[in-house]
Amino acid sequence: MPIASAHPLLSVAALVAGYGRPVVGPVDFTLARGEVLGLAGPNGSGKSTLLSVLAGAGRRFAGSVDLAPGVEISWQTQRQPAVAGIPLNGRELLALTGASAAGLPPWLAARLDERLDRLSGGQLQFLHLWACLQAPADVILLDEPTNNLDPQGVAALGAAIAARAAAGAGIVLVSHDDDFVAAACQRVVRLPGGPRP
């Protein structure tokens, strides 16, 4: 469904989020189509928790999360699924989320027909990221996407994020890597402090 670009894809207002108890908030921001928004802050400040609430997994204690009608979310978490002994190859993984292989960096495109358990940790991480990033979705949530990536992978990820945003997606990115956040994001919401007492 086409969504008017004048309206934000995602609006977060006075959001207090957590699991058993509040971990982060109140937080306010909006996300527009084509925008890359960074969530930054020290460990324990609730960046990943906030993403999980946006994806409908965590608990909202106060405030609101509003999605424009018809918006689809794609969410990459830090959890790495077990791949050892599972005979699934890269092409099949991309097909699961509906992601296209077009535009994959050559160093990974050449290995698409290999099983996931034959890829290196960095190649597997990038493939998982690609499957989420290129899945049909309007809002893409990325949680610490640079984990396990070498400088070549980080550079390719930055380019892929920029291209996906240019194609019309809104992206929320959580990372402890301030340099990457500064390079990849047009706007940064900084979450205060560490874990709540």
Binding site: A57, P81, I86, L88, L93
Partner: peptide
Amino acid sequence: SRPLLLSHFYPDFYRARG
């Protein structure tokens, strides 16, 4: 097949889409 494989590799795929 696809939902079962998705549940393993992307356990939150459906939840994120409501």
